[in-house]
């Protein structure tokens, strides 16, 4: 097992952990503004870590032209997710505010 494989295993396991926290947040949080707090961050970092781990593992089998192109493509997908995921999060929360969904607050729970 080479050093690149060990680094990529660590990166992919870290990404899996952040995916896991994003999913737990999606299930447990009280309303969807708070759910987006968990998913918008956890998904972005999880996907970026997983994809960079896969790009490193792909370079392990030799530095040919095709391998380098494939790694660059994987990093392109990572950069795209890095830009697109916060934008989608903002679009969904703006739709919610336009529909006048009240955000959940602690005080409201005590009153009811």
């Amino acid at each position: 097992m080479s050093i690149l494989e060990i680094i990529s295993i660590i990166l992919i396991l870290g990404g899996l952990f952040f995916f896991f926290t994003a999913t737990v947040g999606l299930i447990r949080m009280p309303d969807y503004y708070c759910r987006m707090q968990a998913t918008g961050k956890g998904d972005t970092l999880g996907a970026v870590l997983c994809l960079s781990g896969l790009a490193l593992y792909n370079l392990d089998s030799g530095l040919s032209f095709a391998n380098i192109i494939v790694s660059i493509k994987i990093m392109f997908i990572a950069i795209f997710i890095f830009i697109a995921n916060p934008t989608a999060t903002h679009a969904i929360s703006k739709a919610g505010i336009d529909c006048e969904v009240k955000p959940w607050t602690k005080k409201k729970e005590v009153q009811s």
Binding site: T23, L26, D43, A95
Partner: peptide
């Protein structure tokens, strides 16, 4: 909105 958030999360995992 909850459904849209969940579908978006599923899409990222599918990638």
């Amino acid at each position: 909105m909850d459904r849209i958030v969940a579908i978006s999360v599923i899409g990222t995992k599918t990638t």
